[in-house]
Simulated scan of single mutants.
Amino acid sequence: MKFKITLFSICLLMFFSCSNNKGEKDLEVQTFKGLYIFGPEFKTLTICRDGREYWVVDSSKVLEFNYAQLNFEKPYLPVYVEVEGRMIETNGKDPQDFDSTIVVTKLLKLTKETPPGDCLD
């Protein structure tokens, strides 16, 4: 009997861990290119092609580390990044009242030099 209960519990745990979290809409992994700004309590990515700004969650733990390695004297200085990640609709409820959040899963490029094109004003 204990074996059946344990097996049932494991199956339930696996089922719920695979389902969406709190109804958030997860989209497929894609590449984002833009200007990343990091500072205390502020992490955003402005997409080059359309100028839209998103909150950033660094699940890779590499983006914030590499930004810090640039040794800026002041926070909130933009850097050009290319990252892989997925966009999660947050409907302006949090964090920081952005409509969407980009969850970064992989850092492809980070540089102080912004390539010519859509990202320059």
Results as ranks from 00 to 15, higher is better:
31 T>C: 04
59 S>V: 12
71 N>M: 15
71 N>R: 14
97 D>S: 13
63 L>Q: 00
63 L>F: 02
96 Q>K: 15
86 R>D: 02
1 M>V: 11
50 D>R: 10
60 S>N: 06
100 S>C: 03
1 M>D: 11
35 L>C: 10
39 G>R: 05
1 M>R: 14
82 E>G: 03
34 G>C: 06
47 I>N: 07
120 L>A: 09
57 V>I: 15
104 V>L: 01
19 S>A: 11
46 T>H: 06
121 D>A: 13
60 S>K: 04
10 I>L: 07
63 L>H: 03
11 C>S: 14
96 Q>W: 10
116 P>K: 10
60 S>H: 05
16 F>V: 07
15 F>V: 01
103 V>I: 03
44 T>L: 05
53 E>L: 11
35 L>H: 05
18 C>M: 12
1 M>L: 14
110 L>T: 06
63 L>K: 05
121 D>M: 13
98 F>E: 00
119 C>T: 02
113 E>C: 09
27 L>Q: 08
56 V>G: 01
65 F>G: 08
18 C>E: 11
49 R>K: 15
47 I>M: 02
61 K>N: 15
7 L>H: 05
88 I>E: 01
33 K>V: 08
26 D>F: 15
54 Y>R: 05
83 V>A: 05
44 T>W: 01
49 R>A: 15
113 E>Q: 14
76 Y>N: 15
95 P>R: 00
34 G>D: 03
80 Y>K: 08
28 E>S: 12
51 G>L: 11
34 G>H: 03
97 D>Q: 13
66 N>P: 05
34 G>I: 04
41 E>P: 00
2 K>S: 14
112 K>A: 07
13 L>R: 04
121 D>R: 14
121 D>S: 11
88 I>Q: 04
68 A>D: 10
32 F>S: 06
4 K>P: 02
55 W>Y: 11
62 V>A: 12
110 L>E: 01
37 I>T: 06
14 M>C: 15
50 D>F: 10
94 D>C: 15
121 D>N: 13
3 F>E: 13
116 P>R: 10
107 L>G: 01
105 T>I: 04
42 F>A: 12
76 Y>F: 14
102 I>Y: 02
91 N>T: 07
109 K>A: 11
67 Y>N: 00
78 P>N: 03
86 R>F: 07
91 N>K: 13
41 E>H: 06
84 E>V: 08
99 D>E: 11
43 K>M: 09
116 P>F: 01
97 D>M: 09
92 G>L: 08
27 L>K: 08
91 N>S: 12
27 L>R: 07
22 K>C: 07
29 V>C: 10
16 F>A: 06
45 L>G: 01
59 S>T: 14
38 F>K: 14
91 N>F: 09
48 C>T: 00
59 S>N: 13
114 T>W: 05
68 A>S: 13
72 F>D: 01
47 I>Y: 02
103 V>S: 00
59 S>L: 13
37 I>N: 08
10 I>H: 04
57 V>F: 13
2 K>N: 15
75 P>M: 07
114 T>P: 01
107 L>H: 04
87 M>D: 00
